[in-house]
Protein backbone atom coordinates (compact mmCIF):
# COMPACT_ATOMS: atom_id res chain seq x y z
CA UNK A 1 0.00 0.00 0.00
CA UNK A 2 1.30 3.45 -0.82
CA UNK A 3 1.84 5.99 1.94
CA UNK A 4 -0.24 9.16 1.81
CA UNK A 5 1.68 12.11 0.38
CA UNK A 6 4.55 12.98 2.76
CA UNK A 7 3.97 16.72 2.70
CA UNK A 8 1.72 17.62 5.63
CA UNK A 9 -1.00 20.17 4.99
CA UNK A 10 -0.56 21.68 8.46
CA UNK A 11 2.33 23.99 9.22
CA UNK A 12 4.98 22.22 11.26
CA UNK A 13 6.35 25.44 12.66
CA UNK A 14 4.50 28.13 14.53
CA UNK A 15 4.09 31.40 12.70
CA UNK A 16 7.16 33.54 13.31
CA UNK A 17 9.31 30.79 14.86
CA UNK A 18 11.77 30.70 11.95
CA UNK A 19 11.85 34.47 11.61
CA UNK A 20 12.52 34.90 15.33
CA UNK A 21 15.35 32.37 15.17
CA UNK A 22 16.93 34.06 12.15
CA UNK A 23 16.58 37.50 13.76
CA UNK A 24 18.28 36.28 16.93
CA UNK A 25 21.08 34.78 14.85
CA UNK A 26 21.56 38.08 13.04
CA UNK A 27 21.49 39.91 16.38
CA UNK A 28 24.29 37.65 17.65
CA UNK A 29 26.34 38.38 14.53
CA UNK A 30 25.71 42.10 14.89
CA UNK A 31 26.82 41.98 18.53
CA UNK A 32 29.94 40.05 17.51
CA UNK A 33 30.72 42.53 14.75
CA UNK A 34 30.21 45.41 17.20
CA UNK A 35 32.65 43.82 19.65
CA UNK A 36 35.15 43.27 16.84
CA UNK A 37 34.78 46.85 15.72
CA UNK A 38 35.15 48.07 19.32
CA UNK A 39 38.44 46.22 19.79
CA UNK A 40 39.87 47.55 16.51
CA UNK A 41 38.66 51.04 17.35
CA UNK A 42 40.31 50.93 20.78
CA UNK A 43 43.61 49.72 19.34
CA UNK A 44 43.66 52.00 16.30
CA UNK A 45 42.26 55.21 17.74
CA UNK A 46 45.32 56.25 19.73
CA UNK A 47 46.41 59.62 18.35
CA UNK A 48 49.50 59.88 16.17
CA UNK A 49 51.68 62.43 17.90
CA UNK A 50 55.24 63.60 17.57
CA UNK A 51 57.45 64.32 14.60
CA UNK A 52 57.80 62.42 11.36
CA UNK A 53 60.05 59.72 12.86
CA UNK A 54 57.73 59.20 15.83
CA UNK A 55 54.66 58.75 13.64
CA UNK A 56 56.59 56.56 11.20
CA UNK A 57 57.69 54.24 14.01
CA UNK A 58 54.20 54.23 15.56
CA UNK A 59 52.68 53.09 12.26
CA UNK A 60 55.45 50.55 11.64
CA UNK A 61 55.01 49.12 15.13
CA UNK A 62 51.27 48.98 14.69
CA UNK A 63 51.61 47.01 11.48
CA UNK A 64 53.96 44.60 13.29
CA UNK A 65 51.57 44.14 16.22
CA UNK A 66 48.58 43.87 13.95
CA UNK A 67 48.77 40.07 13.77
CA UNK A 68 48.28 39.43 17.54
CA UNK A 69 45.65 42.18 17.69
CA UNK A 70 43.69 40.58 14.86
CA UNK A 71 44.13 37.10 16.33
CA UNK A 72 42.81 38.18 19.73
CA UNK A 73 39.91 40.19 18.29
CA UNK A 74 38.86 37.36 15.97
CA UNK A 75 39.10 34.95 18.90
CA UNK A 76 36.86 37.21 20.98
CA UNK A 77 34.41 37.46 18.07
CA UNK A 78 34.35 33.70 17.53
CA UNK A 79 33.91 32.94 21.24
CA UNK A 80 31.20 35.56 21.66
CA UNK A 81 29.23 34.57 18.56
CA UNK A 82 29.69 30.83 19.02
CA UNK A 83 28.55 31.12 22.64
CA UNK A 84 25.46 33.01 21.55
CA UNK A 85 24.80 30.45 18.79
CA UNK A 86 25.18 27.54 21.21
CA UNK A 87 22.68 29.18 23.59
CA UNK A 88 20.33 29.98 20.72
CA UNK A 89 20.49 26.43 19.30
CA UNK A 90 19.92 24.87 22.71
CA UNK A 91 17.10 27.24 23.65
CA UNK A 92 15.51 27.68 20.22
CA UNK A 93 15.78 24.10 18.95
CA UNK A 94 14.58 22.47 22.17
CA UNK A 95 11.10 23.39 20.94
CA UNK A 96 11.68 20.80 18.21
CA UNK A 97 13.96 18.39 20.09
CA UNK A 98 11.65 18.28 23.13
CA UNK A 99 8.52 17.10 21.27
CA UNK A 100 10.64 14.64 19.29
CA UNK A 101 12.04 13.20 22.51
CA UNK A 102 8.53 12.96 23.98
CA UNK A 103 7.29 11.13 20.88
CA UNK A 104 10.29 8.78 21.01
CA UNK A 105 9.42 7.89 24.62
CA UNK A 106 5.81 7.16 23.63
CA UNK A 107 6.94 5.00 20.69
CA UNK A 108 9.22 3.04 23.01
CA UNK A 109 6.37 2.57 25.49
CA UNK A 110 4.11 1.22 22.74
CA UNK A 111 6.86 -1.13 21.61
CA UNK A 112 7.30 -2.38 25.17
CA UNK A 113 3.56 -3.09 25.41
CA UNK A 114 2.58 -0.29 27.80
CA UNK A 115 -0.97 1.08 27.54
CA UNK A 116 -1.18 3.45 24.60
CA UNK A 117 -1.88 7.06 25.51
CA UNK A 118 -2.27 10.22 23.54
CA UNK A 119 0.46 12.85 23.44
CA UNK A 120 0.26 16.55 24.18
CA UNK A 121 3.07 19.02 23.69
CA UNK A 122 3.97 22.02 25.83
CA UNK A 123 2.94 25.51 24.91
CA UNK A 124 5.28 26.93 22.30
CA UNK A 125 6.49 23.53 21.10
CA UNK A 126 6.82 23.08 17.37
CA UNK A 127 5.96 20.08 15.10
CA UNK A 128 2.51 19.94 16.71
CA UNK A 129 0.96 18.16 13.65
CA UNK A 130 3.08 15.11 14.55
CA UNK A 131 1.26 14.79 17.89
CA UNK A 132 -2.09 15.40 16.18
CA UNK A 133 -1.44 12.69 13.57
CA UNK A 134 -0.36 10.25 16.29
CA UNK A 135 -3.41 11.08 18.46
CA UNK A 136 -5.73 10.56 15.47
CA UNK A 137 -4.24 7.09 14.96
CA UNK A 138 -4.68 6.25 18.66
CA UNK A 139 -8.22 7.65 18.51
CA UNK A 140 -9.00 5.37 15.56
CA UNK A 141 -7.60 2.37 17.43
CA UNK A 142 -9.78 3.27 20.43
CA UNK A 143 -12.90 3.58 18.31
CA UNK A 144 -12.14 0.18 16.74
CA UNK A 145 -11.60 -1.35 20.18
CA UNK A 146 -14.92 0.09 21.39
CA UNK A 147 -16.67 -1.32 18.32
CA UNK A 148 -15.18 -4.80 18.88
CA UNK A 149 -16.16 -4.77 22.54
CA UNK A 150 -19.65 -3.50 21.65
CA UNK A 151 -20.03 -6.37 19.16
CA UNK A 152 -19.07 -8.89 21.85
CA UNK A 153 -21.40 -7.33 24.43
CA UNK A 154 -24.25 -7.33 21.91
CA UNK A 155 -23.71 -11.04 21.41
CA UNK A 156 -23.66 -11.60 25.17
CA UNK A 157 -27.06 -9.96 25.52
CA UNK A 158 -28.57 -12.74 23.42
CA UNK A 159 -27.37 -15.24 25.99
CA UNK A 160 -30.57 -14.54 27.88
CA UNK A 161 -32.22 -16.59 25.11
CA UNK A 162 -31.35 -20.20 24.35
CA UNK A 163 -27.75 -21.45 24.29
CA UNK A 164 -27.67 -22.24 20.58
CA UNK A 165 -28.74 -18.73 19.57
CA UNK A 166 -26.26 -17.24 22.01
CA UNK A 167 -23.39 -19.36 20.71
CA UNK A 168 -24.29 -18.66 17.07
CA UNK A 169 -24.41 -14.94 17.77
CA UNK A 170 -21.07 -15.05 19.60
CA UNK A 171 -19.39 -16.89 16.75
CA UNK A 172 -20.85 -14.41 14.29
CA UNK A 173 -19.53 -11.54 16.40
CA UNK A 174 -16.08 -13.17 16.43
CA UNK A 175 -16.09 -13.53 12.66
CA UNK A 176 -17.17 -9.90 12.27
CA UNK A 177 -14.44 -8.76 14.64
CA UNK A 178 -11.87 -10.89 12.78
CA UNK A 179 -12.98 -9.41 9.45
CA UNK A 180 -12.82 -5.91 10.91
CA UNK A 181 -9.35 -6.55 12.29
CA UNK A 182 -8.15 -7.84 8.95
CA UNK A 183 -8.05 -4.30 7.59
CA UNK A 184 -4.93 -3.88 9.72
CA UNK A 185 -1.98 -5.20 7.77
Amino acid sequence: MNMPPPSPPEALFEHGYRLRFILRLCLAFAAGAAALYGIFYLVLSRPLTGDYAGVFHALRNLSVFLRPVIAVSVLVYVLLVCGAIAALCVYGLHKVAGPLYRMERVMEEIREGAPTRTVSFREGDQIEPLARAFNRWIGKLRRDRQRWIAAMEDAERLCLQDDATCRARMERALREIGADMSRYR
Binding site: M1, M3, P6, P8, L12, V96, I127, P129, W137, R185
Partner: peptide
Amino acid sequence: LVKAVRIGVGRAIAAFRASEEGDLST
Protein backbone atom coordinates in the same frame (compact mmCIF):
# COMPACT_ATOMS: atom_id res chain seq x y z
CA LEU B 1 17.80 22.26 9.00
CA VAL B 2 14.15 23.32 8.87
CA LYS B 3 13.77 21.47 5.57
CA ALA B 4 15.32 18.33 7.08
CA VAL B 5 12.90 18.55 10.03
CA ARG B 6 10.00 19.02 7.63
CA ILE B 7 10.99 16.00 5.55
CA GLY B 8 11.66 13.75 8.55
CA VAL B 9 8.56 14.75 10.53
CA GLY B 10 6.45 14.79 7.36
CA ARG B 11 7.29 11.12 6.74
CA ALA B 12 6.37 10.24 10.32
CA ILE B 13 3.05 12.09 9.98
CA ALA B 14 2.39 10.23 6.72
CA ALA B 15 3.11 6.95 8.54
CA PHE B 16 0.60 7.81 11.28
CA ARG B 17 -1.98 8.72 8.65
CA ALA B 18 -1.39 5.40 6.92
CA SER B 19 -1.73 3.69 10.32
CA GLU B 20 -5.10 5.36 10.76
CA GLU B 21 -6.16 3.69 7.50
CA GLY B 22 -4.92 0.34 8.81
CA ASP B 23 -1.52 0.23 7.14
CA LEU B 24 0.88 -0.65 9.93
CA SER B 25 3.54 -2.33 7.85
CA THR B 26 4.70 0.11 5.15
